[in-house]
């Protein structure tokens, strides 16, 4: 069965009050983990991601009847997860910026204090490099590289044009490559 057909069937079941709960369990099986990691990279800690994930699925459950299918279900859910994450950061006044040189960085403090972060020096370095990107570049890079979303999907989630996203992404990749090369040379 093709993915479009399966998605369509799942949407129909989710909109049917009698089948909704069963279909929602399927939806959780399929998307819980993907949305969790999407959220985790934005809100950083596991506890925060856990809260936002729960809110996200409650919103999806409540709002599924209003889903007009103008985008794919999966893009629609990512958009809800993204918006919930940003709202969480705003509500808790957590700065999304990650700068390891800044000892007051909320991101750094949250990251290193999280018991479910066990990154080594190299991983911290990658966080450090990503933190030097603009917020938009960070989001695009994370969605494209780790979440494996297409530019079209990211543009629907962030409501930014494809060309702007591509420019941001390739600029981010170039910056990261340069930073890794510079770090490697410095180490050697």
């Amino acid at each position: 069965m093709k993915s479009g057909r399966r998605e369509s069937d799942l949407i129909k079941k989710l909109k049917n009050p009698k089948l909704k709960n069963e279909a929602f369990k399927d939806l959780l099986d399929l998307y819980q983990e993907r949305l969790y990691w999407h959220i985790r990279k934005i809100v950083v800690t596991h506890d925060n991601a856990n809260d936002v994930l729960q809110n996200t699925f409650i919103k999806i459950y409540k709002g599924i009847n209003n889903f007009k299918e103008q985008s794919s279900l999966h893009t629609w859910m990512y958009r809800i997860a993204y918006n919930e994450s940003i709202r969480f950061l705003d509500t808790n006044k957590i700065k999304p910026s990650l700068n390891l040189n800044d000892s007051n960085s909320d991101y750094l403090n949250n990251l290193t204090q999280d018991v479910y972060f066990d990154g080594d020096e190299i991983q911290l370095k990658l966080h450090s490099i990503i933190s030097k990107l603009s917020e938009k570049q960070q989001r695009v890079f994370q969605m494209k590289y780790f979440d494996d979303l297409s530019f079209r999907e990211i543009s629907e989630i962030l409501e930014v044009s494809d060309n702007t996203l591509k420019s941001s992404y390739y600029s981010a990749v170039k910056t990261i490559e340069e930073e890794i090369i510079a770090d490697t040379l410095q180490t050697n």
Binding site: P17, K20, N21, F24, K25, L28, D29, Q32, E33, Y36, W37, R40, K41, H46, N50, L53, Q54, F57, I58, Y61, K62, Y116, F117, D118, G119, D120, Q123, L124, L126, H127, F146
Partner: peptide, 29 residues
């Protein structure tokens, strides 16, 4: 990937437990 590149991990059986928690917190239709 997230563990390898970003050092981010989750508790054991997190996703199965989380699924139950989410289902129990859903509003009644």
């Amino acid at each position: 990937e997230h563990k390898e590149y970003l050092g981010m991990d989750v508790p054991d059986n997190y996703f199965s437990d989380s699924k139950d928690r989410i289902l129990s917190s859903l509003p009644s239709e």
